[in-house]
């Protein structure tokens, strides 16, 4: 803004696309913060990620756009939703209450810092809709080919180290989540389930798949579902939910 020199001139379609995508991104970001139901918040996150993917396409970074959708929208947010659904934490939250003390002040400070960083990095060229803020692709050849060459030559070591890190994380997660092998496969029979539970002792309440999936929030919902929970719990270990 403000008469800064841009590398490639922004045309009308560019500006329009940028404007629409920006509205989607920012609207989605607000939705993530303000939506009361976690599922709606996750869907707002999807909107934001899509808007960013559109911006990537506009910047001629098609590979990044596709990967953004595949990885973030297709895997990570799906995983979020998966956890939300399986753990039944999809009750609505009071968005105006602080969960931690001083949360808002810290959030404000951090947000301002990020904003300052963006302005400094973009050097005030970040709302023009131009094809590139720092410089266009040099030389011939497709975007993908260049990215691939850079990844497997100049940045080979960081790339491999990152993938090793991810593998280690996956193996670690599997090891942590795994039931020890030498224990007999009947832990469920050790749980003493009272035949007629009181409203307060719900042995599976913490992890059972919640039938209140629709996110409806009658205040007495949890109390009324407890007996049904305890008596109709299927003979599965609650811990054995399929992950990914």
């Amino acid at each position: 803004m403000g008469g800064a020199t841009v590398v490639a001139a922004a045309t009308v379609p560019d500006a329009l696309t940028f404007a629409i995508a920006a509205v989607i991104c920012v609207g989605g970001a607000f939705g993530v913060v303000l939506m009361r139901s976690p599922v709606h918040a996750a869907l707002s996150l999807v909107a934001t990620l899509f808007g960013i993917a559109v911006l990537f396409v506009e910047e001629d970074a098609q590979f990044l756009a596709a990967v953004q959708v595949i990885v973030y929208t297709g895997a990570i947010v799906v995983l979020f939703l998966f956890v939300i659904m399986l753990l039944g934490v999809d009750r609505k939250e009071r968005v105006l209450a602080d969960v931690f003390k001083g949360q808002r002040v810290v959030a404000l400070v951090l947000g301002l810092m990020v904003l300052a960083e963006v302005v400094l990095l973009g050097r005030s060229r970040w709302t023009t809709g131009a094809h590139s803020a720092t410089g266009s692709l040099e030389g011939s050849g497709s975007n993908v080919a260049k990215l691939g060459r850079a990844l497997f030559t100049a940045y080979l070591v960081p790339f491999e180290v990152t993938s090793a890190l991810l593998i280690v994380a996956v193996v670690g997660a599997v090891v942590l989540a795994r039931r020890p092998d030498h224990r007999p496969v009947e832990p469920i029979e050790e749980v003493e389930v009272p035949l007629v539970p009181g409203p307060d002792d719900d042995p599976f309440g913490a992890v059972g798949t919640d039938e209140d999936a629709g996110g409806s929030t009658a205040p007495d919902e949890t109390a009324s579902t407890v007996p049904e929970h305890a008596s109709s719990e299927p003979e599965h270990e609650p811990a054995e939910v399929p992950s990914t």
Binding site: V39, V69, A75, L81, G214
Partner: peptide
């Protein structure tokens, strides 16, 4: 230029339809 990745991306978006349909039915 990334036609095949576009295909994979959309097939991963298609998960949402099924997933949200089941969840939102309550």
């Amino acid at each position: 230029p990334m036609g095949i990745l576009y295909l994979l991306a959309l097939s991963s978006v298609a998960v949402y339809g099924v997933m949200l349909a089941g969840w939102s039915s309550g």
